[in-house]
């Protein structure tokens, strides 16, 4: 089984995010790591490899610091890592990012492409299915269970769906996006961390992806960012004091008259 995993460097969910006063961007506290759902994708790829053999390659598109998440992937057990860090590739929307990532996947043999349910920063869940369309393979999102049948060239997955679950069979190659519940990602062993520090991270530029600068990054994006906005603030909490019976009466009164929520 040849598996490709897409991993993104994103801010930690606890990181402070500040919208710039002129709305031109956001300032994000320097606390970054591998996107949580992507770590589930890496873990699943490693489990499949441990069962059936083959290779796992991680790919990330982002600024040069994205090398950190690729090292994390290698420390977990991934065999190879590819970084797409060229300036022209950055700053695009999910569509443009997917286009570049798909071109990178195409440079490799693959039976399965795994990625996260969504990236923490844009929370879109778009890149995976768009990559699948560029590759001409089927996609299944939000999977919580994966069973590969290499000889049959197929994979059976369970996905979270409206009101329950769906059991779906896809021929290989296919793209799957990882949802919580799929597995518990491993903590990189010390040996892995040592290996990761020394590992060679391959870089692919636009030329080797076979793409022009107008097809990727901001130029290749389908969306134009106009401005960033501070989210609306909830007014300060009103504490309701007293013994429980009084509290309850006052709360009901406020919900009726002030909040008009009853």
């Amino acid at each position: 089984m040849e598996i490709v995993v897409l991993v993104k460097r994103v801010p930690d969910s606890e990181a402070q995010v500040q919208v710039k006063p002129d709305g031109s961007g956001v300032t994000v506290e320097e606390r970054y790591g591998m996107n949580f759902f992507d770590s589930l994708a890496v873990e699943e790829a490693l489990r499949i490899k441990e069962k059936f053999g083959g290779r796992v390659t991680a790919i990330s598109l982002g600024p040069s610091q994205s090398v950190e998440v690729l090292r994390t992937a290698i420390a977990m057990g991934v065999d190879d890592a590819i970084l797409l860090e060229e300036e022209a590739l950055l700053g695009g929307d999910e569509y443009a990012t997917a286009r570049a990532l798909a071109a990178a996947v195409k440079t490799l043999p693959y039976d399965l492409v795994l990625c996260g349910r969504e990236a923490f920063d844009d929370s879109s869940g778009v890149v995976g299915p768009v990559v699948a369309q560029f590759l001409g393979i089927p996609s299944v999102t939000m999977v919580t269970k994966v069973e590969v049948e290499p000889e049959q060239r197929k994979v059976k997955v369970e996905r979270e769906a409206e009101g329950g679950r769906e059991l779906i069979e896809a021929p290989l190659p296919a793209l799957l996006t990882a949802q919580k519940g799929l597995n518990e990602p491993r903590v990189p062993p010390v040996m892995g961390v040592v290996k990761a520090m020394k590992a060679q991270i391959k870089k692919l530029d636009l030329g080797s992806l076979g793409l022009g600068p107008e097809e990727v990054g901001q130029k290749g994006a389908k969306l134009e960012v106009l401005r960033y906005i501070e989210p609306p603030k909830r007014r300060a909490v009103k504490y309701i004091k007293g013994e429980p019976p009084e509290m309850v009466k006052e709360l009901i009164e406020l919900l009726k008259t002030e909040a008009k929520a009853l």
Partner: peptide
């Protein structure tokens, strides 16, 4: 932005080669 549309529409964006905004 339901389970079904979040599965279908990103794939549709890829197929039509168009942009998409989710959530």
């Amino acid at each position: 932005a339901t389970y079904q549309a979040r599965d279908l529409f990103p794939a549709l964006a890829g197929r039509l080669q168009k942009g998409i905004v989710v959530d």
